[in-house]
């Protein structure tokens, strides 16, 4: 079942043509990545979906309401003045759910996210990886149908990032959140996705759509030959795309 579909979506911001007839879809329970060079307009797609930017031309069907999406920004955006538990319930509070009920909804998930002992800590007291887990839980707990993750592991150091990706794959395999991930990390896209859309430089077009048929779990073990081939193919596509070379 298609959870979300974009058809011929174009965006011009001022004089810049950012998105050029983007078409893509996400199925229920599917993990889809948008892979592209920095500044290609990947995040613009998210702004469009969350209603931060208006749709100019094209059509979005399936999950069209702002309330269908939970958004996780690049940096964790945890509020430094709120304790972790109060950061986690923020989305539910905004929905008008009383604090007590919101906390009850978060409580059973704390252990899986490794946050059970840190609910009364302030974000500044947590490591980068833990903050990122908190930001992810804050996203998940909103109970929206589609999770939008904007380079969620981009700000972490290489070792923490690998840990987090492995942990995340594990969580995703049990929960199967319908997920749209924006990344410029080829390896991350191959490791986590069912399908990958490759975007060109600005104005962004979809220049490839690749299915990743590798069985899960893919992380926490030596990368398979198939994963290597797909990574190589994606890099090739990104490096030899049409348009100006940097």
């Amino acid at each position: 079942m298609t959870a979300l579909s974009l058809k011929d979506v174009s965006i011009t911001l001022g004089d810049t043509h950012v998105l050029d007839r983007i078409s893509m879809h996400v199925d229920q329970g599917e993990f889809v990545s948008i892979l592209g060079p920095s500044g290609a307009g990947k995040s613009t797609i998210f702004r469009l979906l969350t209603g931060a930017s208006p749709l100019q031309t094209g059509k979005i069907t399936g999950a069209t309401h702002q309330n269908s999406f939970a958004f996780m920004p690049q940096r964790d955006a945890l509020m430094p003045w709120r304790r972790i538990l109060d950061n986690l319930t923020l989305g539910l509070e905004v929905q008008g759910i009383p604090r007590k009920d919101a906390r009850a909804q978060v409580a059973p998930l704390l252990a899986d996210f490794g946050l059970a002992d840190f609910t009364t800590h302030y974000p500044a007291q947590l490591s980068g990886g833990m903050r990122q887990r908190a930001a992810l839980l804050r996203t998940i707990v909103q109970g929206r149908s589609i999770q939008l993750l904007d380079e969620p592991f981009g700000a972490l150091d290489a070792l923490t990032r690998t840990h987090m990706q492995t942990w995340f794959e594990d969580r995703w395999r049990t929960a199967r959140w319908t997920t749209l991930l924006v990344t410029h990390d080829v390896r991350e896209a191959v490791a986590l996705s069912d399908r990958i859309y490759v975007l060109s430089r600005r104005p962004a077009r979809v220049i490839a759509e690749i299915t990743v048929p590798i069985p899960r779990p893919r992380l926490g073990r030596p990368p398979s030959a198939a994963a290597h081939d797909i990574e190589a193919h994606l890099l090739e596509t990104l490096l030899h795309q049409t348009g100006e070379n940097p």
């Binding site: 969350t50 931060a52 999406f69 920004p73 955006a77 989305g91």
Partner: peptide, 14 residues
Amino acid sequence: TDPEIEDLIRSMGA
């Protein structure tokens, strides 16, 4: 106010 925090809470429908 951190614009990322504002974007986030706006995306929650605030």
